[in-house]
């Protein structure tokens, strides 16, 4: 147990390195430039160089800050995002902790991350940080509702909160195909709301460097700042992995009913490749958002949630429930 845990943590760090590199390359691709290309082959060691730089930087604590909370906040943020990784199924029969309330566990733990952000913003004793913290509080609390509702739609269809059972229920087809339009709607809502939940552009109002000069982590430097960065990438991975698991069948291969030969070929592709392929597709989509969209304003952000996403997902839940009762899905 302990060994697998340590392995998982090491894997997460490596994963974050890779995501950092991927983000730079995706950004460069979108912005018609090359991206990192000096350190290591094709710039792949750039992120290592950055980490080394951040490690050796002085972790300043401002004079007026509440030192205890200021230093605690990055740990809370990192720990919460690492806790969420536990129940994810990476491949067939490869799941660290198949908790029977997987979906609920994920949404409950991820709701804790906001406390770290609020703590960081408040304890920096910087007005920009405080505004950033307030924004993130309002933002995350409201978008959690939409995430929860869109997850519930699949829980209704599969009849279980357990991630492994949800994956099993997709053996004959992923929910996004089986569930017709209502599931596609909740998938889209999930992607939008989770982009907001993990504070990435166009919902990165909490950091909004052009408005708040960095928002809640304005005062952080060195390793403490790196921890916020680390948690951002872990969150990105977790959100994409959950979306892949719930809507796209996790490690389940792509099958078409009736085409046995095709299905057999699909089965030969290892299940972990299926899982990571889907996850990275969603990660790419979220990165794509970041490098093409301008940022929303805070009132627009809240309007989007309360006036559009939440009513739509509530009606959608009714549709999904009706569909589940009548058995209209495949």
């Amino acid at each position: 147990m302990v060994i697998t845990g340590v392995c998982l943590l090491a894997f997460l760090v490596v994963l974050c390195f890779f995501l950092g590199y991927m983000e730079r390359k995706v950004a460069a691709f979108m912005e018609i430039r090359l991206g990192p290309n000096r350190v290591g082959p094709k710039g792949s060691m750039q992120i290592v160089a950055d980490t080394v730089k951040l490690l050796f930087k002085e972790g300043l604590t401002p004079d007026g800050a509440d030192k205890f909370l200021f230093n605690l906040a990055p740990f809370i943020v990192v720990i919460t995002s690492m806790l969420v990784v536990a129940p994810i199924a990476y491949a067939r029969d490869f799941q660290l902790w198949d908790i029977n309330i997987g979906v609920l566990y994920v949404s409950s733990i991820s709701s804790m991350a906001v406390i770290g952000i609020l703590m960081a913003g408040w304890s920096s004793s910087n007005k920009y940080s405080l505004i950033g913290a307030m924004r993130s509080g309002a933002q995350i609390v409201s978008y959690e509702l939409s995430i929860g509702l869109s997850l519930i739609s699949i829980v209704i269809l599969s009849g279980s909160l357990q991630l492994s059972e949800i994956i099993e229920s997709q053996a004959n087809g992923w929910w996004i195909f089986k569930g017709h339009i209502p599931v596609i709607i909740s998938f889209v809502i999930f992607i939008i709301a989770s982009t907001a939940e993990i504070n990435r552009a166009p919902f990165d109002l909490t950091e909004a460097e052009q408005e708040l000069t960095g928002g809640f982590h304005t005062e952080y430097a060195g390793m403490k700042f790196a921890m916020f960065l680390l948690s951002e990438y872990i969150n990105l991975f977790v959100v994409s992995a959950i979306a892949a698991t719930i809507f796209l069948g996790g490690w389940m291969p792509f099958h078409i009913g009736g085409l046995d030969a095709f299905n057999h070929i699909m089965d030969y592709i290892p299940s972990s490749i299926w899982f990571f392929g889907k996850t990275f597709l969603i990660i790419f989509i979220i990165m794509w958002f970041r490098w093409t969209f301008p940022r929303l304003r805070i009132d627009q952000l809240l309007n989007l949630e309360w006036k559009y996403l939440l009513p739509i997902s509530m009606v959608n839940i009714l549709l999904v429930t009706a569909m589940a009762i009548m058995g209209w899905h495949f």
């Binding site: 950004a27 912005e31 018609i32 552009a201 909004a208 052009q210 301008p294 940022r295």
Partner: peptide, 16 residues
């Protein structure tokens, strides 16, 4: 303008 509103990519297109 794009950069200020949080869209980084237009910057590079205009600078081209």
């Amino acid at each position: 303008m794009g950069l200020d509103l949080g869209a980084v990519t237009p910057f590079f297109y205009a600078f081209r």
